[in-house]
Structure formats: structure tokens, C-alpha cells
């Protein structure tokens, strides 16, 4: 069971890496193409900007959730730096993860409401008339994944708290990360 979970987690992160790579490459290429079209071919594609927007928003939200998995979101680690006892550090981390998880759950719920609202009032992009929902879905996917990784983090700190072998505290879910 545990092994299967590891495999699933690894597959999820690998998928996120591919999404990030593809979105990021599409955005860079799209912007570069815009310059080439303007100066080399003397033209523009009406609506190129709204096309670039799609991978952009996906990159933002999948990137944010990937950073949750890696534990690289910015925080003020004052207490982690200045607290002496390892146990106190783990306690603080448990509190932090609990608060983060609570906020994450509320935001995931709000994201559901948001998507429902968007489905009720379907909007489209101005030039190509693409449904906006294909971009907005990134918001809910991002929040659910961020919340999920926060829950994993909380699970780990609690396990840590119970066993209290603080010497080998894993830093984050990043341990699942595939190489390369």
C-alpha cells in the first residue's frame, strides 16, 4: 500500500514537471514568435496574446503546487533559525502546517465555488472565442494540489512528533522526487 502511494506520488510529480516544462516552453516560444513575426515578417497574429495566456496561467498554478511539494514557498523562518530545541521546532512546524492546511481547504472550497460560477456564466476569450474555463480550471487544480501537499507535510510532522526522532527530519515531500 505504502509502496503504491510512493509510486503514485512520484508519477504525480513527474506529470507536474512535464506540464511545467511544456507550458514554460510554449510561453517562451510564443513570445519569441511574436517578436520574429513583427520584425522579420512584419505582421502580427491577432489573438496570440490570449493563446499565450493559457500556458501562462497553468504554469503559475502548477508551479505553485510543485513548489508546495518541494517545500520552497517563501516563509519567514525566524523561529526555525532561533529556536534551540528540535522538539520545539517540530511543534512549530506542526502548527504552521495545520494553519496552512486549514487555509488551503477553505481556498480549495472557494475554488470549487469559483469553477461552478464560471460554468454557470461561461465566458470566452475575445478573439478565438475559447472557453475561459480551460484556463480557470488551473486555479482549482493548483489549490487542491497545494492543499494535498500541505496535508502530506502535516502528516509527516505529526509522525515526527510522535516518534520524536528529530535527528532525521525530512524536509518535505521532495524526497519523492524523481531524479533528472
Amino acid at each position: 500500500m505504502k509502496k503504491q502511494l510512493h509510486v503514485a506520488a512520484r508519477a504525480l510529480l513527474a506529470a507536474q514537471r512535464w506540464i511545467l516544462f511544456i507550458c514554460c516552453a510554449l510561453v517562451v516560444i510564443g513570445l519569441f514568435a511574436q517578436v520574429i513575426l513583427r520584425y522579420v515578417l512584419g505582421t502580427t497574429i491577432l489573438g496570440l496574446n490570449e493563446l499565450i495566456l493559457i500556458p501562462t496561467i497553468w504554469m503559475y498554478f502548477i508551479g505553485a503546487s510543485y513548489a508546495s511539494a518541494e517545500g520552497t514557498h517563501i516563509s519567514a523562518d525566524i523561529l526555525q533559525v532561533y529556536l534551540r530545541s528540535n522538539r520545539a521546532k517540530v511543534v512549530v512546524r506542526t502548527i504552521v502546517s495545520t494553519i496552512s492546511l486549514a487555509v488551503g481547504l477553505i481556498l480549495s472550497w472557494w475554488a470549487c465555488l469559483y469553477i461552478q460560477h464560471s460554468l454557470d456564466r461561461p465566458g470566452t476569450t475575445p478573439v478565438f472565442g475559447l472557453p475561459l474555463i480551460i484556463v480557470q480550471v488551473a486555479v482549482i487544480v493548483g489549490f487542491i494540489l497545494m492543499t494535498f501537499y500541505t496535508a502530506v507535510e502535516l502528516y509527516r510532522t505529526i509522525a515526527q512528533l510522535k516518534s520524536d526522532k528529530s535527528a532525521t527530519l525530512p524536509n518535505s515531500v521532495a524526497n519523492y522526487k524523481t531524479e533528472g
Binding site: 513583427r38 505582421t43 502580427t44 491577432l46 489573438g47 496574446n49 490570449e50 475575445p126 478573439v127
Partner: peptide
Amino acid sequence: PEIPITAGHTKAMGFSTVSMA
């Protein structure tokens, strides 16, 4: 602007058009 009717009209007037924010 990225509005087809506006872009189409200015082109029909005789301007070369470039879309830009």
C-alpha cells in the same frame, strides 16, 4: 486593439495594422 471588427475596419480604411497592448 485585439478586436476583430476594429482591426478589420482600419485595414479596410487603408492602414497597415499591428496589434499591440
